[in-house]
Design a protein around this nucleic acid. Sequence first.
DNA 1: ACTCGTGTTAGCTG
DNA 2: TCAGCTAACACGAG
Length: 268
Amino acid sequence: MPELPEVENARTVLAQATGRVIAEIDDRDDWVCRPHRPGDIATALEGGTLTTARRIGKTMWCDTRTADGADGPALGVHLGMGGRIVVTDSGGERIGGGPARPDRQPRKTEWDRFTVAFADGGEFRLFDKRRLGRIRLDPDLSGLGPDAENMKPAEFRDRLAAGRSAVKARLLDQSVLAGVGNLLADETLWQARIDPRTPVRDLTRTDLDRLHRNLDRALERAIANGGVHTGEVIEHRHPGGHCPRCGTEMVHGTVGGRSTWWCPKEQE
DNA sequence: ACTCGTGTTAGCTG
DNA sequence: TCAGCTAACACGAG
């Protein structure tokens, strides 16, 4: 599920975990918590509090304070392909995450990969069937480009146009800009009518500005509508799918190492 | 039964 | 150095 819009929603849920005293942490999943050893994260954070819930691209982290009021290590949270944040109140009820809707995910405790129990009785959990999510202390954010939201046109052009990769590969490169995933890239390129395979060096300034405007719009709409899966072209990304604008059959290929669908007529 | 995938990373190759 | 490929992680969906 998670690309920038989903992660931003998750961040608002995670924010519900701030300001509460950490009683106990279950960090026994040594794959999700690598390279830490079981107990490392618990030792570092138990007795303290999470003070913020921040995000760049698809990476979230909480700043922390120790029991005696000093700054603690940051707690990094990445959802991977399908992780979800669950925060409960002292009564065990889920909080955050917008309008209440029944949780369709069957819950199985072995899929809770990391749990913070608060002194008030509530919890913060990373629920992740595929175990591709990640928790770590003081995550390295230096490899991330600027968040894909709120980039200036010139900054977007300069960063995107460097190098000679296919434009989609560039959009997916988190060190160029952070937050665009596979679905959002396909949606944006379709909206902008640009072939995902186009080398960035062949894009004109006009192309880049149009791409940027469409990325902004796709992000805004995905956030408003509840996720990247609400994009216009997303439901047509399958064998036999047709371009919702012109009706041409969508074409499939691999670009930037990822499954890619585009309209061969409009995206040249 | 078998392939694919909304993500990331390490390691390898040209 | 850069760019592209592969494997690994684990499981559901088609």
